[in-house]
Amino acid sequence: MAVLIDLVLLSMLAITALRVIFLKDLFAVVMLFGIYSLLSALIFVNLDAVDVAFTEAAVGAGISTVLMLSTLALTGRTEKENKRSSVLPLLVVIATGAALIYGTLDMPPFGAADNPIHQHVAPRYIEESPKEVGLPNLVTSVLASYRGFDTFGETVVVFSAMVGVLSLLGAARRRENSDDAAVIVAGFKGHKVLRVVAKLIIPLIILFALYVQFHGDFGPGGGFQAGVIAAAAFILYALVFSLSHAMQVVSPKFLQLLASLGVLLYASVGIYSMLKGGHFLDYNKLAADPLVGQHFGILIIELGVGIAVFAVMLSIFYAFAHQVERSTIK
């Protein structure tokens, strides 16, 4: 049954990908990308990788769709006609694909129990992590404790993405005269249903984000997902009640501070454990009992990740939306 579901989902994935290549209407392409992410999230669920599925659904289907739509608002919605011949790129792609398929011939059989990937570190994580880290959710203990260094790298990458976007688009600033902003909102003034429902649902989304953040030790979830979900709540607010209102709630300047604070919070846990006489990010040294230390360490670094991701996602959205507003005023 699981194989059947996998096959159906994978073929839907392939069809979506082909549609994405051949469609010229970029708006539809963005929507198909959302569907693509949702399908891959379903495949991850079928593989019992709920944490990854959660991230894929929140980031791929949620935030990145919004960001791509706001990019479309800046660039226009149809693809430019490509006049160059596509023979050479096709040859390159076919050669690369053939090389990759040739490379897989040497791989061990798919899903076999004695594959190197199941023999290397996975047994140790599965057998020792209840004693060493003591969290019910293995994924979180691998992500935040065994692979804490990688996760720190990811957080820094997310942070530098924000730096990149802000240096390209220019940081959004809160305007003092919000008259011209009011013109753009006029289209949404009539959306009474949307406003009422948004008011009802935004607090619930933030509550859910907090649940995901702090329940990540016990179930699927964690800083990345929670940050994205919280950012989604504020993006919804900005979309329905106008950007300037959202900027009054959380100002762009404050978000930049918050993003740095998240990364620094993560790094400071590492430094603190060094001061305590351990290695960088050695949570065992955070408290007298190593298990308690692990708990503290994971809780704090997940909080750092959550804050950083939230601030980065929201300020990237601010930067895009601010550009859109500026270009429509002119």
């Binding site: 289209g187 009539g190 249903v193 949307l194 429902v197 649902i201």
Partner: peptide, 20 residues
């Protein structure tokens, strides 16, 4: 509860913005 609130709202917003 979440779906009962959001899914009709999404359809409403879709139809309304098409009308708009």
């Amino acid at each position: 509860m979440f779906l009962m609130i959001t899914s009709p709202t999404a359809s409403h917003a879709l139809a309304k913005s098409a009308r708009h």
